[in-house]
Simulated assay, not measured.
Amino acid sequence: MAQQLPSAPFPILTSVSEVREWRAARQAAGEQVGFVPTMGALHDGHLSLVRASLLANEATVISIFVNPAQFAPHEDLATYPRTIEADIAALASLTIPVEGSSSPRTVSALFLPPISALYPSGIDTDVSKQRGTFLEVKGLQEVMEGVSRPGFFRGVATVVIKLFNIIQPTKAYFGQKDIQQALLLRRMLTDLHVPAPLASNLVIIPTYRDAASELALSSRNAYLRAEERPWATVLIDALHKAQQVWDEQKTKGAVVVKDVLEAARASVRAVEKKAQEEGKGVEVRLIYVALNDPDELWDLEKGESAMVPRGKGAVLSGAVMLGRTRLIDNLVFDYPLN
Rank of each mutant, 00 (worst) to 15 (best):
I287T: 11
S121P: 00
Q181M: 11
D191P: 05
Q4W: 01
A24I: 00
D293K: 04
E18K: 10
A8T: 03
A90P: 02
L286C: 05
V268T: 03
V245I: 15
Q4F: 01
R105W: 11
D87N: 10
K241F: 08
L192G: 01
A266C: 12
A266I: 00
V315Y: 03
A199Y: 06
Q176H: 11
G303M: 05
Y173V: 06
P206L: 10
G155K: 06
S121Y: 10
D247Y: 00
E214N: 13
H240Q: 11
M39K: 10
R220Q: 06
G253V: 05
T38R: 10
L47C: 07
G139T: 09
P206D: 09
D293Y: 05
K274Q: 15
P68Q: 12
P6R: 06
F71Y: 11
D237F: 04
E31C: 12
L184I: 13
S17R: 12
K171Q: 14
A270K: 11
F153Q: 01
V156Q: 04
I167L: 13
Y208H: 13
S101Y: 08
L49T: 04
A86Y: 02
A254L: 02
V98G: 07
A314S: 12
S317P: 04
G318E: 02
L235Y: 01
A25S: 13
M39W: 08
M321P: 00
Y288A: 08
S116C: 11
G318K: 02
V256D: 12
D334H: 11
D247N: 15
E99L: 12
Q27A: 12
F174E: 00
V234G: 03
Y208W: 09
E18T: 05
S103T: 15
N338S: 11
A270C: 04
A2S: 13
I161F: 14
A290G: 15
L183T: 05
R20N: 05
Q141E: 15
A196R: 10
V137Y: 06
I96P: 00
V203N: 05
E214P: 00
H74S: 15
E142A: 13
Y208V: 14
A232H: 03
S93P: 07
S121L: 08
R220K: 12
S219N: 09
E31V: 00
A52G: 07
R131Y: 07
E142Y: 06
V234H: 01
K274D: 14
E99T: 12
S108K: 09
W22H: 04
K274E: 15
E85D: 15
V16W: 01
A319F: 05
L322C: 08
M321Q: 12
D178Y: 06
A290P: 01
P195E: 14
K273Q: 15
K274S: 14
D334F: 02
S53L: 07
G34W: 02
S200D: 13
P150V: 11
D124N: 15
A290Y: 00
G279K: 08
T325I: 08
V137D: 02
H74D: 14
L112N: 01
E301T: 10
N330T: 08
E214F: 03
G151A: 07
L110A: 06
S48Y: 09
L331A: 04
V66G: 09
A264F: 03
A8D: 05
P169V: 10
A89I: 02
E85S: 14
G151R: 03
A157N: 12
F71A: 07
